[in-house]
Amino acid sequence: MTWFPWSESIKRRACRYLLEHYLGSYLQEKLKLEQLSLDVYHGKGYVQNVQLDVNAVNEALSHLHLPFEIVHGSIGSIAVYMPWSALLKESCEVEINGLNLVAQLRQSQNVDFSSMTDSFCNSLKNMTTSMEFAEQCFNEVFE
């Protein structure tokens, strides 16, 4: 995967935008450009040792009525693969490695599996297409 000949600053901002777009609300702290590392040869940006905002994760899971809650969470590394030479034609990829979650049981043990299935199906319907995302990314990075 080759990188389009854009400046490193623009590539860094695009990687951060992609990470913030999909994962930002679940991260304890906003990502800083200095945290991102770039692997120009492989078209990859990555960040390591990221803490999760367990309140946001629990809030996102609350409608599932799970019998547990997350009390601590971290991610070993997050990699973003961006096909710079074909950004409007190929998909970007986000890879999470080393996801660690510590959970504890809730007081209530009622689990509603039908709402879990409905929620998952609704999430799939609301996903952004690659073209829509590329347009959002370009608007954010070049503003």
Rank of each mutant, 00 (worst) to 15 (best):
F68V: 15
N97R: 15
L18P: 01
V71D: 09
A134N: 08
F68L: 12
M131C: 01
L87D: 03
H72N: 05
S130F: 00
V141I: 02
E69C: 08
V94A: 02
L124I: 08
P83K: 08
R13E: 11
E20R: 04
F4G: 03
Y26W: 04
S130M: 01
Q51D: 00
Q104G: 05
N122H: 09
L66K: 10
L23G: 02
S108T: 10
L61C: 12
K89G: 14
L27D: 06
V54C: 07
N110D: 10
N55G: 04
E132A: 00
M1A: 14
N55Y: 07
T117V: 09
Y41N: 10
S25M: 05
G76Q: 03
L18N: 05
N100C: 03
V141Y: 04
W3V: 13
A56L: 01
N58K: 14
Y46I: 03
L23K: 04
R16C: 10
R16M: 11
Q28A: 12
S91W: 02
L88V: 03
W84H: 09
D39M: 05
S85W: 06
L64F: 05
A60V: 05
C121G: 04
N110L: 15
S130R: 00
Y41V: 13
H72G: 02
F142Q: 06
E143M: 07
A103W: 07
L33I: 14
I78S: 02
M127P: 02
N97M: 06
L87V: 07
A14L: 12
P67R: 13
I10L: 13
D112K: 13
D53P: 04
E69H: 14
H21C: 01
S85L: 13
Y81V: 09
F138C: 11
V57D: 06
M131N: 00
L99H: 01
L61S: 05
A60R: 09
F4I: 10
L19N: 07
A103K: 09
L36S: 10
F142R: 04
A60P: 03
T117K: 07
S114H: 08
L124G: 07
R106C: 12
K125F: 03
L27E: 03
T128K: 00
Q109S: 15
E29K: 01
K11Y: 15
F133R: 01
F4V: 11
C15S: 15
M116A: 13
P83R: 11
L36C: 14
S7G: 15
V141N: 07
H72I: 00
E20N: 11
M82K: 03
H72M: 01
F113N: 05
C15A: 14
G24S: 04
Q109H: 09
N55R: 11
A14E: 07
G73D: 04
D53I: 00
G45L: 02
S62Q: 13
I75T: 04
H65R: 14
W84D: 10
K11G: 15
Y46Q: 12
